[in-house]
């Protein structure tokens, strides 16, 4: 994970392709903060369901709204939900994994039993349970997905902490009287950042997929400000009359997932 040089990055095709894809998507999202071709919620009765043209590069939807502007906005919503999910999932997961792995004993047994049970549970279902407890909306969706992602991070971090905690340098630090909290956060966690980086990127990949799925079901972001998954469920009934309306947001989801997957794979293969 050390000596990061441009030359080494360029030799890793996964990082290059992932970087290009994510760069383009981030560019689209950042530009969207300052400028969009049209207001994403502006309707126009005379321009319903138009095809791809210079005026509307991804066409328009059933209310005459510009699909490209909506995709720009929707990618922002999707990415922000994914970021929130990972902050909660990786944050809480790391703390749980570090504590259970470091201390072991009864807490470890009990907590890991629960985590194992939750881990076996499909995350989309877990998120649906939590959404039904908290209610529908994008804030609730972030919390639900975040909680649903805790088990996988907790397991990864626990495994890594177990691997590290009997190493000589930890023993050495212990002899010097380092406190437990300092030991976990200053000595052990920095040592597993490589594993963390790739699991966070794979987590992003899964978060985008899960968000898209849940928004498609209508439990995520609410109209008129739609995330990409929501756009797909709105667009589905018009797919024969105007395929571009369905395909464009779908492809952006695929690109986003692919970008994260490539970056994650690239970091995993980093030597």
């Amino acid at each position: 994970m050390n000596d990061i040089s441009l030359k080494k990055i360029l030799k890793n095709p996964y990082l290059v392709i992932g970087g290009i894809i994510m760069g383009l998507i981030l560019l689209m999202i950042i530009v969207g903060f300052f400028w969009m071709p049209y207001e994403p919620t502006k309707m126009s009765a005379s321009e319903k369901l138009q095809g791809i043209s210079l005026k509307h590069i991804m066409g328009t939807d059933n209310m005459g709204r510009d699909v490209f502007s909506r995709v720009m906005y929707g990618s922002r919503v999707t990415l922000m939900i994914a970021v929130g999910t990972i902050i909660i999932g990786a944050g809480v997961g790391t703390i749980i994994g570090a504590i259970t792995g470091y201390y072991g004993g009864v807490i470890d047994e009990v907590v890991m039993r629960i985590i194992d049970a939750l881990f076996a549970f499909p995350s989309i279902l877990l998120a649906l349970v939590i959404v039904s407890v908290f209610g529908v909306g994008w804030g609730q969706l972030v919390i639900s997905l975040g909680i649903a992602f805790v088990p996988s991070f907790a397991r990864i971090v626990r495994g890594e902490v177990l691997r590290c905690k009997n190493m000589d340098y930890i023993e050495n630090a212990r002899l010097q009287g380092v406190s437990d909290i300092r030991m976990i956060f200053v000595h052990i966690l920095p040592n597993i950042k490589g594993v963390m980086a790739s699991s966070i990127l794979i987590g992003f990949n899964n978060a985008v997929l899960a968000e898209a799925g849940l928004s498609y079901l209508g439990v995520g972001s609410q109209p008129p400000y739609a995330s990409l998954g929501r756009m797909l469920s709105d667009a589905q009934q018009y797919m024969l009359t105007r395929p571009s309306y369905v395909i464009c947001p779908g492809i952006v989801i695929v690109m986003m997932v692919l970008g994260f997957a490539f970056l994650g794979e690239g970091i995993k293969r980093w030597k």
Partner: peptide, 12 residues
């Protein structure tokens, strides 16, 4: 590529 396509999009 297939791994990046959510099932509902491939369904559509």
């Amino acid at each position: 590529v297939i791994m990046a396509i959510p099932p509902f999009f491939s369904g559509i």
